[in-house]
């Protein structure tokens, strides 16, 4: 690895640590990383949307036309419509004409609301309804091998899924107060909901810790590169930079501890 690449790698580790420091409190290093990433990522998405959105969707379609004909001689002249609508969005820069920007906004919302109605009805209602009409495995009601209620495919589990779903739906009824038998079914429904939420919370912990392990791995790899003398571009600068960053970090931690102790002595006095 070349020296400049190593410097960039070190910078990556540095911003990693800056971001990590947010766990302790908001501090100048975190502010640096935060402001940097906001700018860089905003720029990144401008570029991506330009090259992968605007160019293929608009410019390439209009490129066979001439701008002095308003691209109306292009074979896809109809793509001037979204271009004009997009420009109408810019009416927001003006105070007097900003109401024009409601047209593209209305189109945007109208199209997406219309799109959602049949699609959500089909995926979230009709298909779920059909999925609930299952044949229950009566032969293995209490599990496949002997009595085992924890068998996921047993008839018992199927019935429980059915009952749980229906009672959870009952919980979401808005027109009726949760009282009497209705209330008891709704209570069972919210129980099922809570068990489900707890389980998926617990299940996610592992994936989240893996994310942190990955960050650890990257940091340790960086340390490995710093001391990897088999590297053909290796020089004394590698470990020097490594130690500089480590010392800097330790220095900052010491500084934080000292200010904390000072503050505490002030408040206790």
């Amino acid at each position: 690895m070349e020296f400049t690449s190593f410097l960039w790698l070190t910078f990556g580790v540095f911003v990693t640590l800056c971001t990590m420091s947010f766990l302790y409190k908001d501090n100048p290093f975190y502010k640096f990383a935060e402001h940097l990433v906001v700018g860089v990522s905003a720029g990144y998405f401008v570029i991506i949307l330009w090259h992968q959105g605007l160019v293929p969707k608009l410019f390439q379609r209009l490129e066979d036309g001439d701008w002095y004909f308003g691209y109306l001689n292009s074979s896809h002249w109809e793509y001037m419509i979204p271009a004009i609508l997009g420009c109408l969005m810019w009416a927001r820069f003006s105070k007097n004409y900003s109401w024009l920007s409601r047209w593209p906004m209305a189109l945007y919302i109208g199209i997406s609301a219309g799109l959602a109605i049949p699609l959500e009805m089909s995926n979230k209602v009709n298909k779920q309804l059909h999925a609930m009409m299952v044949e229950i495995d009566w032969a293995n009601f209490f599990g496949h091998d002997g009595f085992n209620l924890l068998d996921v495919t047993s008839g018992f589990s199927q019935v429980l899924i059915m009952v749980g779903t229906i009672s959870a739906i009952v919980y979401f009824f808005f027109s009726k107060e949760h009282t009497g038998v209705f209330g008891r079914v709704a209570t069972f429904g919210i129980w099922i909901l809570m068990i489900g939420f707890g389980a998926s919370f617990g299940f996610t912990v592992m994936a989240r810790i893996s994310l942190f392990i990955n960050r650890l791995q990257d940091t340790f790899d960086w340390g490995g590169v710093a001391f990897d003398s088999t590297n053909q571009h290796y020089s004394g600068m590698f470990p020097a930079i490594f130690w500089a960053l480590i010392l800097f970090m330790i220095g900052y931690v010491v500084y934080e501890i000292v200010t904390y102790l000072k503050q505490r002595s002030v408040t206790t006095q």
Partner: peptide, 10 residues
């Protein structure tokens, strides 16, 4: 190695 971190973390 991964589980070595996962288990104590959990």
């Amino acid at each position: 190695d991964g589980m070595r971190v996962q288990l104590p973390a959990h």
